[in-house]
Design a binder for these strands. Structure first.
Lengths: 179, 179
DNA sequence: CGTCCATATGCAACGAAGTTCATAAGGGTC
DNA sequence: GACCCTTATGAACTTCGTTGCATATGGACG
């Protein structure tokens, strides 16, 4: 049910077509809730039936028609309701941690860990670039901007800790001889 | 497909019934891959057909019979194969981050954040107790023990990072007046 | 000229995971 | 005596997400 709310949040920022949303989900909002375009179209259809969003079709020349979705009053009400529901802890499901726990192949883990570390570094750079660009002065933020910045800070913390963990693994495994 | 491997890893540590596994998943292994007993029974059945595990029935008096599962050579081979498959980055799906991003109700977010912080603190205490109890001298570890300790370290990093993030949110939101 | 990419929308099939329910015996609590 | 907890296994249903496919046009690359 949470993709519904992620889409609604995105639509409060600006009305959009399914295609636009899919691209947003490849970046910003998708950092915290990844989604494919198929999934997005499905949920948009469901939410339109529920009356949370409404669409207007824009004809285009040389391109497929575009359906622009906007959030309705009912959609806003749903977001308000959702805001008061406590959000339980996220279940962490880590293939990698299970693999570590079942330690079998030292070289494979090292390779995996180095790749993960590089991935964390790249993602962290993205986040930090976003922070610098969109929130250069956090103390001046309020409301929506403040929330978006705090969400991004969460991403930054996640990547920083991921890097620390990888370094700890590398130190522990490289420091000793073969298994 | 990853629950399969989590169960196999657990069975390499010690053979067990579905019920035993369900309890393990409520603690240790379940920290990184939560699963319900229904899910576990389903996967055990599937894996037995695939020949990765085998079961022996133990009759009990006054209690339902028990099916004890052990990993087979084919199961071990599957784990070896799986160990060499790089484990891509985990998609992070955070209801809470989406809620922050869609900042609507300051009080609701504060309440939520305080609850999350308490949860992280409690979980961190559990992890640290485990670490002290099972891995008092990490430098002496090797093989399976080393992997299990490093996995636990990952959990510890996750909770510490979660607490930091909550504190950052609380500081930012409490520091300013109402929305 | 053929192939790939961007724009734009979707359906169908499948798999993984969560929720609810069923069954069965013994022991403890109100 | 009625109800709940622990032990023990599992089926049925639903929801969510992934993967593959379908369709249509225009522009860039080789």
């Amino acid at each position: 049910m949470a993709l519904d709310h992620a889409i609604l949040v995105s639509l409060t920022e600006r009305a959009a077509s399914g295609y636009d949303l899919a691209r947003r989900f490849d970046a910003s909002i998708g950092y915290f809730w990844p989604a494919s375009h198929q999934q997005i179209y499905k949920v948009l259809g469901r939410m339109q039936e529920a009356g949370w969003v409404e669409s207007t079709v824009h004809e285009q020349h040389g391109r497929p028609d575009k359906k622009n979705y906007a959030i309705t009053a009912a959609g806003e009400a749903e977001l308000d309701r959702w805001a008061t529901v406590p959000s339980g802890r996220e279940a962490l499901r880590s293939d990698f941690a299970v693999k570590l726990r079942g330690f079998r192949d030292r070289e494979a883990i090292l390779t995996d860990t180095r790749a993960r570390r590089a991935d964390h570094v790249a993602r962290l750079a993205e986040y930090e670039a976003s922070e610098k660009r969109f929130y250069p002065d956090p103390s001046a933020l309020d409301g929506a901007g403040l929330g978006a910045w705090l969400a991004l800070r969460g991403g930054i913390h996640t990547e920083e800790r991921g890097i620390e963990w990888c370094d700890e693994i590398l130190t522990a495994l490289e420091g000793r001889g073969s298994r």
